[in-house]
Nucleic acid binder design. Sequence first.
DNA 1: CTGAAAGCGCTTACAG
DNA 2: CTGAAAGCGCTTACAG
Lengths: 338, 338
Amino acid sequence: MRGVTIRDVAARAGVSPATASRVLSGHPATSVLSRERVEQAVAELGFRPNAQARSLRSTRTSTIGLLISDVRNPFFADLAHAAEQQALELGLITLLANANESVEQQNRYLDVLLAQRVDGLILVPQGGDNANVEMLASSGLPAVFVDRVIDDIDLPSVTADNSSGMGEAVQHLATLGHRRIGYISGPRSASTGRERFAAFQAATLDCGLERDPELVVFGDFQAGSGAAGARQLLELTNAPTALIAADGLMTMGAVRVCQELGIRIGEDLSLVGYDDIDAFAIMRPALTLIAQDADEMGRTAVRLLHEVIAGQRPEPVVLPTRLMVRKSTGPAKTGVNR
Amino acid sequence: MRGVTIRDVAARAGVSPATASRVLSGHPATSVLSRERVEQAVAELGFRPNAQARSLRSTRTSTIGLLISDVRNPFFADLAHAAEQQALELGLITLLANANESVEQQNRYLDVLLAQRVDGLILVPQGGDNANVEMLASSGLPAVFVDRVIDDIDLPSVTADNSSGMGEAVQHLATLGHRRIGYISGPRSASTGRERFAAFQAATLDCGLERDPELVVFGDFQAGSGAAGARQLLELTNAPTALIAADGLMTMGAVRVCQELGIRIGEDLSLVGYDDIDAFAIMRPALTLIAQDADEMGRTAVRLLHEVIAGQRPEPVVLPTRLMVRKSTGPAKTGVNR
DNA sequence: CTGAAAGCGCTTACAG
DNA sequence: CTGAAAGCGCTTACAG
């Protein structure tokens, strides 16, 4: 089966390789007869064009790279799924790569994807060592940022408004009487980590809440750090009455710790999660959370990339976030430290 | 940055393209001087070898394809993550593709991955139109099945024992006094769908339980079908007192429906889920489930593929499954139809 | 250890 | 509409 080349097809069809190639690529200048013969030969031989050779010559692969942060994070899984469907609609095939929240792994995949000569690249940048991302940006390969950005690198982007949902959440807790809110932050190396934290800080200031540095812990957007952070905050002498976690996986970790510690979410402690994940809807009490639209973000990223490939220079898109109030937040137990 | 070729590097280093190529690929027959010069030229020029050209000549890409069923299914996300890490350890880069539980999409990606000339392919086959999978198998490209298999296609595989965990689950429910167990099955097109269903049938027979055809509904391994199936079963005149769902996403859908219907899981109804997903651990009551080891399955698949690439013919691997009893299963309410 | 040459499998002006 | 020829960017026997 393998090893069948366009020469073989041409020979069997009784035409030249050039004609065979034209039929295969749908070039208009082909006769009905050639088309029939070539198509039959292709079928008989089980011919499968070698994409390497094709794109070596034509410099197009109809392939895009999608380099996400973490496949195991449902937010990115949803985003990847939506992006892929949108790409398919535009005739593009998505090669997915997983940085696993590691710059080194990101940079490695960046190399591979460039070497594979994808037609464009959608990237959730890790932050940290940006050398490869800078090279990407200056290489002229169509590329867009999604979810996160790198400040000094000027690429089209689709992100969420990391500020409004967070503001609503703090406001909501303040209204319920909470004065000490614990915050499990994402890493400062990620723009989302920084922006959500800044929004939290601004909102606590606005609402006149306590702003004790002890109330903030930094995680890495993965579950383990959310668990560790929650534990640290809940063991404080003067523990917070409410917690906000800055992404879905860290929220997951925080929930687990509360359960281990026998803390009743929604009664002993108010908890606000991040990302509208299925698990948070079936939990009891259902989780109050800050939602962003992963689907829309994924589809938009592909659309932007498509525009860049077409030579345009699309404006950055910022998608809304919003607070979904459910059952995990309630009135602060005033004066009582649980 | 782009457009720098090995010729440019060679010229700048004052050597021939052949020598430059040897340095780049770590060929032993190179002088220290050449090595230094070429490496410097590479750095100065920002040279990035064109993988297309390289593998067109060398017919190796150091790249493997991993074609999974559904990125949004946490089981496959975990599997993909583990496989990728294992591949990295073996010096292989994983290109992930998502069939989205669709044969058409599977077949499309199969084409692309073959065209990209991956060194090997790990596949969760969809079942249905197997033409492309057969072509893959007969093409001689190293390939292994993971999680699911196609009966008539002889490829190394790593699967889970779809029978023992299911048997334990039925036994467990029977012991609790349940006579009528509803079953939300996976599709008959998937080997996992068939095997788990067969195991369910065998176990109900063994335990002398009712075997009413009404008690079985077929889904597609996605959440919506789990919800629809659960609703159908729970609305039966003579409704089951326990439910088993055959994968994680369908379980998710079933849980949602119970909540909507105000059915108390673990009291009004016993529920056994499939796959050890984080969400099932933080649910209250925590879900009793049939667990399989996604990590081990992913890593094993890569190891098997690596052996196939090395020319070996590894035996099929079957991983254990086991029942994890938690709080969602309890004594049947005898005689009472809720 | 090194270089000139051929070739991997396609596509695409060019000429007819 | 068709074919001969050149070339995409590498690698690899071959000869030295």
